[in-house]
Amino acid sequence: MKAIVQDRYGPADVLRLADVDPPTAGPGQVLVQVRAAGVDPGVWHLMTGLPYPVRLGYGLRRPRHRVPGMDLAGVVTAVGPGVDAFAPGDAVYGTGVGTFATYAIARADRLAPKPGNLTYVEAAAVPVSGQTALTAVRDAGRIRPGMRVLVIGAGGGVGTYAVQLAHAAGAHVTGLCGRGKLDLVRHLGADEVVDYTRTDLPDQRYDVVIDTGGNRSLSRLREVLTPKGTLVLVGGETGEGTWLRGFDRQLRALAVSPFVGPRLVPLVAKESTANLTTLTGHIEAGRLRPVLDRTFPLAGAADAIRHVERGHATGKVALTI
């Protein structure tokens, strides 16, 4: 089969298109013929092995999995022992291993039937970012009707979903994003939109701040929270170091949170069939839709990751396979 492979950590130049043997579904696993795969910053971290703690789980000297990619949408071609929720021919979406390929393996408990009103490319843009936003809004932020919510990075991959989910939960949503994304974020359900190139942060107080931007200090973010508000930290790219890049604020938030009024919550996203089913309900009811910035062919995976790395994509980027 065709796949994007890498034999060492590094920039996008380490990726190459190659012919490899297709994987085989083991117990509890599903083999999926991939029709499309999403691209997000997490793929960049696993490709580069940065920050270094990433390598503890994914290979110290080289990637344990040669084929990158997590998001997928496609058709089931085989199921492993113990899988009865899916059968060959089913259209599915979710997260797997090595999805930048013609075929990929996924755990059955991280797949769900593809929403009927989405194409494969649209569906592939949902799993990682959509479940991250769902966890931020529902579990970490505990957003309820009437709350005032600020989404930082509202025009990005996670931000576009967070705006829609917070709006669906009945919150008053303010979206902070670049000038070119203001109309989109307003259309997604934001009650107010703010251009970050003109205003660093709005001069208001919020019950929940969901920060997907990752470059503001904790002290600055606490200034726009109510005394009992919640700050949800979704990733982050602060710093240029190789040890804690993207994780330094999360560690400081864990240390500081017990001693301040607001809750500071480093997000740990949850991937599951149940979460995907919740997202499907929102999608098929018209409350949630993926926003696609660009699509690339499988052979253009390196270019797709470079595009995401620049940090200005509107919504999600996907590969068509």
Rank of each mutant, 00 (worst) to 15 (best):
R142K: 14
E122Y: 02
V128I: 15
F100C: 14
V121D: 03
A106I: 01
L134I: 01
A123W: 10
G94D: 07
Y93P: 05
S129R: 10
E122P: 00
T95Y: 08
T95G: 12
T135E: 13
T135N: 06
R110K: 15
D139T: 15
V128T: 15
Y120T: 08
V92G: 06
E122M: 00
V126P: 10
Y93F: 14
A91L: 10
A101G: 08
V97L: 13
P127A: 01
A133M: 04
L118T: 02
V137C: 09
A124M: 05
A125C: 14
G130K: 05
A112R: 06
L134W: 10
L134G: 06
K114Y: 06
R138M: 08
T119D: 11
A104R: 01
E122S: 00
R110H: 15
Y103R: 12
Y93G: 02
A140R: 04
I105V: 15
A104D: 02
V92S: 03
A140G: 01
A104P: 04
G89A: 10
V121W: 01
L118D: 03
R142F: 06
T102Q: 14
R107G: 15
N117S: 14
D139C: 06
P115Y: 10
G141H: 09
I143P: 03
Y120A: 10
T135C: 10
G94T: 07
R144Q: 15
I143Y: 06
